[in-house]
Each structure stands twice: as structure tokens, then as C-alpha cells.
Design a protein around this nucleic acid. Structure first.
Lengths: 166, 166
DNA sequence: ACTGAAAGACACAGACT
DNA sequence: AGTCTGTGTCTTTCAGT
């Protein structure tokens, strides 16, 4: 009898992103303060559906955050260091304790659990070498269960983006 | 070794950030879409000076960008890989050519010039292991002058922030 | 799921302390 | 450098299609 047309990507209830969603994301990634009006003109929709789509992507967690990115050299965080850490013990308790400590250290802006000879990779920002030395000796190395630590210094930033949708 | 321009110079007039500027930055870092009105209430100022301060920080480059951060797992970029690269030749031309190629690769979201045995560190995002293998073999390794490449896989994200002002 | 309109909130500029 | 006030623009909701 009645035939239903299957649409591939229109089921927003199932959290599928269609082309218009991706276009909106592309614009928002570049500029979080772009107006809904401007987006609506660029994606050829009125403001209402754009507003609804953005809200939906916020609620479903596709959009994690609207962030303001600050120039690290202008807020006295000119030194960036990649830091490799291995733990002495690899029990769950030991790992959790390390993680909790790391999350409280403001200088550590990123931390990943990695494959290979080290357990964690940290991205650390400091004012200068003295500040980093202080961090390394007095805070990082003081964490209990700390095994080896290896520092790799960032001498230049070639590329830095957060653009996952393109 | 490739050289990158590092803006170390802070001589843009009296570009000193006071406590109120830092308070504003703290709020904006967390939420780029916070209203000027809301900021003004939290820092105990009226909207005009807040508006002026933000504009000044945009113009002086303290504020680099208002970015929307997208959940990488929800846009089919679930795999994150840290990639170390050394070049065969270290002339300026060779380095510049490598840099230019890297900047055009969408999968590479970060690239740093680093100290140590490798020349560059890359952060790469892919849909899955197949997509990464394709990237590694067909694009990264195909770059001329490519020396060694070593991949370290991110198994878990412990911390990820951009909060330089705290 | 989209368009269009309409109310309320906000950004932004001007006059002034 | 700040407050207050006003105008134009945007967000956000609600009808209708």
C-alpha cells in the first residue's frame, strides 16, 4: 500500500549528521561567535532550523565546547614541552591516583594514555625553562609511583588546529 | 632542520593584561559564547569596558580564535595517533617543503618541531585503523625526503584543555 | 522540518562623570 | 577608565505550511 521513502540521513533522532549539520559545524569550528543569521545565509536556511540544529548538536554532545583560544606567548606560557611518563606500578589504583594528580596540575594541558614504552604523554606549558624545571622537579617527579620521565621540547609550532570536520 | 617563526616579542605598546583582563579571559576560555552582559556582572563592571577590553585583546592577538570544539568520536575521527618523523635532509628547502605538505593534510591537526632524535611530532586523527594505515602508507610516507616514521597510538584521553589562563 | 513574523535580549556607540 | 542610556541587530519562540 503506502510506500515510505527512506531517507538516509534525516533521522535526527538517531543522531546522524547530515550535510547541513556538517556545514554548520565547519563554520562554527572556525568562529564560535558567528551569528545564527550569518550561518543561515551561508547554508541557505532560515534562522530557525539552524538554531534547532545547533541546539541538537549541543545536546547530543557533538559540540563539546565553545572555547576561546589564547596566544600562549602572550600570557607568559611561551614554553611547550612534551613529556613522557612511565609508572613503576601498573595497578588500577596506582594509575587512577596518577591520573587524578595530573588532572589537577594546571601546567598539564593534555594527557594521553599511549602505546609503546611509556605509559603517558603529557603536553605541558610553562613560562620559561626555570618554571619548567620547577614543575619537573618539584611537582611532576614528586608524584608517587613515578617511574621514568622524558622531556621533549617544542621548538616551533608548524600547525595547530582543532578542525575535525572539513 | 626547518625553522619556524616564533612570535616571542611582546612589544605591542603597553599590552599588559591586568586582573580584570585575566578574569574576562578565564570566562571566555570556558565559554566563547558567554554574553558581554554576563561577563560584566561576574567581573563587576558595566558592559562597555568589558566590550572594550575584549576588543583590545582580539586586536592585540591575545585572543587568537573563538573555536567550537567537536567530539572526535562523533564525527568519525575516533583514532588519535602521535606520529614522529625525521627527515633525510635537513636543508631549509627540504624542511619548508615538508612543512607545506603537512599543513595541507587535514588528518594532521597538530605539528611541532621538536628536540631529540626526531624532527617533528604530529598529532593525527583518523576514522579507524584502516584509514590511518592508508594515511600512513599512501600520504605520509609518500612525502619526499621522509626519513623515519614512528607511530604511537593514543589509547585514552586523560586530560584535554586549552586553558592557559587560570 | 522548514518559513516568516514578532518579542525580548543583547551588542555597540555616544554623552557624560 | 568607568557608568548610563539609547538604537539597531540578533536570538529565540510561536504560529502556520
Amino acid at each position: 500500500m503506502a510506500k515510505t521513502v527512506q531517507k538516509e540521513d534525516s533521522t535526527i533522532g538517531q543522531n546522524t549528521l547530515d550535510g547541513k549539520d556538517l556545514s554548520i559545524l565547519r563554520l562554527l569550528q572556525e568562529n564560535a561567535r558567528i551569528t545564527v543569521k550569518e550561518i543561515s545565509e551561508k547554508v541557505h536556511l532560515s534562522t530557525t532550523p539552524v538554531h534547532e540544529r545547533i541546539k541538537r548538536m549541543e545536546e547530543t554532545g557533538v559540540i563539546k565546547q565553545y572555547a576561546t583560544l589564547v596566544d600562549h606567548t602572550k600570557v607568559k606560557k611561551g614554553l611547550m614541552v612534551i613529556c613522557y611518563v612511565s609508572l613503576k606500578q601498573h595497578s588500577k589504583e596506582a594509575g587512577d591516583k596518577f591520573i587524578k594528580t595530573i588532572q589537577e596540575l594546571n601546567e598539564v594541558i593534555e594527557c594521553y594514555n599511549i602505546s609503546g614504552e611509556f605509559d603517558f604523554m603529557l603536553k605541558v606549558v610553562s613560562e620559561d625553562m626555570n618554571a619548567y624545571y620547577d614543575f619537573h622537579v618539584n611537582r611532576l617527579s614528586q608524584i608517587e609511583n613515578m617511574g621514568h620521565v622524558q622531556s621533549v621540547f617544542v621548538m616551533g609550532i608548524i600547525k595547530q588546529t582543532h578542525q575535525l570536520v572539513y
